[in-house]
Computed example of a mutant assay.
Amino acid sequence: MSTDDLAIDVDGTEVVISHPGKVFFPERGETKLDLIRFYQSIAEPLLKALQGRPLLLERYPNGAGGKSWFQKRVPKSVPSWLRTTVVATPNGTTSDALVAADLAHILWAVNLGCLGFHVWPYHAATPEFTDELRIDLDPSPGVGFAQVREAAALTKELLDELGIEAHLKTSGSRGLHIYVRLRPEWDGYQVRAGAVALARALERRHPALITAQWWKEERGARVFVDFNQNAPHKTVFGAWCVRPRAGAQVSTPIGWDALAVVRPDELTIATVPAVVAEHGDPWASAGERPQSLEPLLELSRQDLAAGLMDAPWPPVYPKQPGEPPRVAPSRARKP
């Protein structure tokens, strides 16, 4: 340790923080140590959401706005207590990824300049089961947050009709994320099929507001339900995690009653601890009531029986059975 380093005891594990005074978020001058203190202050809800899951690290060693890269593999030289797990890419390449085993693992990554944790939808101990459906409501150009709010409310309305309990969070940027905690019974291909069916059902109900169209040229000024965030091996930005933005915005779980009033840009490392202290963790009991994917799989079966093909997959994935031609409509060869 140098004289500038800070050793933090995390439940008996020492995590050394180098250059704790380095500014990570220029809007208010918040430092690496401020980010450490934030994660310490919300450790309980953070670990309820992330614990045991593999993490993809988004590193900004010089703070938000600086040089960055995504890091799936942990460095070769790591503390002996660090837990990792083998994850795979769509083409089968494997790597050792960090596991959110406890708060020490989170703080260790922050020390490396991690300003974004992207989380796998399964636990490292049971990778065969995808236990989270993640519904990413992504605003297309020309879409405001009011439309994203409306799309979220309509998504909840449909899920309620299907008997599926869902939970809401801000993305930390322009969108909203809706999560469904699932029973450990389905794999990533089945969960994605359910997400495709949900997106298509929402588009049929609300075609002027919501789209399930994968190709950007077909979306228009609508909210896109990004079903491919549920493709196997995909990660989504973690709950309670801080975005690499100058204002240190947090991807914050909120109650459905807060949807009408939430201002995502105001949820930052400076404000979220007080919100949690006052209102608690809106996802606190989510894991106690895992849901069934079967209602969405039934919608998927109905779509396929009606003649619909699978939706397009991202380009990094091998061609899938039942997938339509992977080319934008404007570039497709005309008969």
Rank of each mutant, 00 (worst) to 15 (best):
A221V: 10
R222Y: 06
V223S: 01
V225A: 01
D226A: 05
F227H: 07
N228Q: 11
N228P: 06
N230Q: 10
N230E: 10
N230K: 04
A231K: 11
A231H: 13
A231N: 11
P232M: 12
K234Y: 12
T235W: 02
F237C: 09
G238R: 04
G238E: 11
G238S: 15
A239Y: 05
W240N: 02
W240A: 02
C241Q: 06
C241P: 09
V242T: 13
R243E: 04
R245K: 15
A246S: 14
G247E: 14
A248C: 03
A248N: 02
Q249R: 08
Q249W: 11
V250R: 04
T252K: 07
T252I: 13
P253A: 10
P253R: 05
G255P: 03
G255V: 02
W256Y: 13
W256N: 03
D257S: 12
D257N: 13
D257Y: 07
A258T: 02
A258V: 02
L259S: 06
A260Q: 04
A260V: 00
V261A: 02
V261D: 06
V261P: 00
R263G: 09
P264V: 02
P264M: 07
P264G: 08
P264H: 04
D265V: 01
D265R: 08
D265E: 11
D265M: 04
E266G: 04
L267Y: 07
I269F: 11
A270Q: 11
A270P: 05
A270L: 12
T271C: 11
V272C: 08
P273S: 09
V276I: 10
A277V: 02
H279F: 09
H279A: 09
H279E: 08
D281P: 07
D281M: 10
P282W: 00
W283F: 07
W283R: 03
A284T: 07
A284Q: 13
A284Y: 04
A284W: 06
S285V: 09
A286K: 06
A286Y: 00
G287F: 06
G287Q: 14
G287W: 09
E288H: 07
E288V: 02
R289A: 08
S292P: 05
S292L: 08
S292F: 03
L293I: 01
P295S: 09
L297E: 00
L297N: 04
L297Y: 01
L299T: 05
S300C: 00
R301T: 05
R301G: 07
R301N: 09
D303S: 05
D303Q: 13
D303F: 11
L304D: 01
A305I: 13
A305K: 15
A305G: 14
A306E: 15
A306D: 15
G307T: 12
L308G: 09
M309A: 13
M309I: 00
M309N: 08
M309S: 15
D310F: 10
P312D: 02
W313C: 00
W313Q: 03
P314S: 07
P314M: 13
P315F: 14
P315L: 15
V316M: 15
Y317Q: 03
Y317T: 04
Y317N: 07
P318S: 12
K319W: 13
K319P: 07
P321V: 08
